[in-house]
Design a protein around this nucleic acid. Structure first.
Lengths: 296, 296
DNA sequence: GCATATTCATCGATAAAACCTATAGCTAAT
DNA sequence: ATTAGCTATAGGTTTTATCGATGAATATGC
């Protein structure tokens, strides 16, 4: 029982004859005769009563007719939905972001996207880069903007946007009036750092190594698991910290914290737009990707 | 989009790969590759993400997958129902009968049939032979047992069962003790007859013509549109009547009426099992037909 | 890091089917 | 009885489905 046979069968019933149906389908009558015969043979049931003048379905034929109509309705519905999906008229965008880009970059982009495509539901998930990467592989996400470099050939990675790491100190700190801070000076003050594995910590440590600086363990006051906690620590006077400039724009403007660039030049780090290589993006995701790259 | 393509597509998703699905379907892997490619081309949408290790559906693929499953569920349901119909495990028997056979023959047959096949619903419709014939043509009925001969090549007519026409008189009537009544005697008494077109009236008039007897119009007290009314008329003493023996079995046994055969020999008339020629009977109807013929 | 194994895509050939033309056979209407 | 209209069948052609062999890409094991 294939679609073609069912379609021919339906048309013969609707048109009330093989010849009429053949005309309507732009086929010849023997083709329809053969198709219906094959259908009847495969079901081992007579489906149509061929009377001289008219062709009417048997009981079995009427039963099958109802099912065939439902099957074609489903097929039509599937085709319509696929087309709508293809045209981007509906759909869901499963988006991921690691902390910094997810907090300070993606929300604005998503806002713009939702304005342009209000019919697409956006689901933004924030988590550590590693978690995001796993979620991508498991198809829980389609696209993500993360702060950590992803060294995995199974992913397409596009550097995109970026950030500068700055040293933050509380307002009354001796460095508060400085223009910048040399890498060496950082070795001699109490410091708060993000946890190991954090992309910003890695970038910072790389910079120190480049300048031959090593932070003694006793200067490391705390390892903090989040940017908010890091800021709170600095505000409380526990020490200085290195953090994304984006994360302290508010505090700096409100003169609660002072952000100092590095003396050897700004410590930039890139964000990365990542997706699973070979994975076809949905139309929604494709559009979001285009938006991100155009804004960048 | 045909069933084969959908089936292959589903199996590839279920098995998680082309090769595995090919093995499960006893086909080769290139066949499945080609089928899915064609499906994708016809829909102008990528349905599967081919990663090195695994094959997973895209958003569009998941959407189609759901529809495909529903389509196959419908197909399966249709096949099951057709099989059940074929096996006679369910179904409806649309049966017709003209007055006499429908009242005195069919009910017993239907009772026996329902005992044998309780899962089949029987719908018995009683009407004049002409009405039954129309209903058969319009597929409102499949099979009927009628008293009138059907002279129409579009029908299969099987003579089946039969009846004897008798003269009935009330208990106190002068003829009540007679063995039989000659055709000539009938011309001289008040008579009640069924309406013109009734099969029993036709049979009776044919017999009179054969014996050169003609009933004068003044002897015809009434034309009555039903066998019950005919009996009531005779019971009321309006006259004598000719009626199916089957219709007066009760009254004769209760000694309310006396039934007299014709002197020239019993006036038999046949009933006919009719169906539209070329019309495939349902399994239920086929079984009923077999039952009728076996009881006959 | 390199060979091996696994997997999907592609190509050419063949088997199967879908389809067409011509025609026979049947029914219904003139 | 003849004709018109319809379906079934036969035989041949085109299209589609399938297979076997092979290549390219990716993961696995040493």
């Amino acid at each position: 029982m294939n679609m073609r046979h069912l379609e021919i069968f339906l048309r013969v019933i609707e048109q009330g004859g093989f010849t009429k149906a053949a005309l309507a389908m732009r086929l010849t009558q023997p083709t329809l005769s053969a198709a219906v015969r094959q259908l009847e043979e495969s079901l081992e049931t007579q489906l149509l009563n061929r009377l001289g003048r008219e062709v009417v379905p048997t009981t079995a034929g009427r039963l099958l007719c109802g099912y065939a109509r439902r099957i074609f309705a489903l097929r039509q519905e599937a085709l319509s939905e696929l087309q709508a999906l293809q045209a981007g008229e509906q759909g869901q965008l499963l988006l991921g972001g690691s902390t910094i880009p997810g907090t300070y970059i993606l929300p604005q982009l998503v806002a713009g996207f939702s304005r342009d495509f209000p019919q697409i539901k956006v689901n933004l998930r924030l988590a550590a880069t590693e978690t995001i990467v796993s979620a991508l592989r498991e198809q829980l996400l389609e696209l993500a903007l993360v702060g950590g470099a992803v060294d995995d050939r199974r992913f397409d990675v596009i550097p995109c946007f970026g950030d500068e790491l700055v040293v933050i100190v509380p307002l009354g700190h001796p460095w508060a009036g400085y223009e910048n801070i040399s890498e060496k000076e950082l070795a001699d003050v109490p410091m708060l750092l993000r946890e190991r594995g954090s992309a910003s910590r890695r970038a910072f440590e790389l910079r120190l190594t480049e300048h031959g600086v090593d932070i003694p363990a006793e200067r490391l006051i705390a390892e903090v698991g989040g940017n908010e906690a890091l800021k709170q620590g600095v505000l409380a006077g526990l020490g200085v910290a290195v953090i994304s400039k984006l994360a302290v724009v508010g505090e700096v403007n409100r003169r609660e914290l002072v952000a100092l660039p590095f003396a050897a030049g700004p410590l930039r780090r890139s964000f990365y737009l990542i997706q699973v290589k070979g994975f076809k993006l949905s139309v929604a995701a494709e559009r979001f990707k285009a938006l991100v790259l155009s804004r960048f």
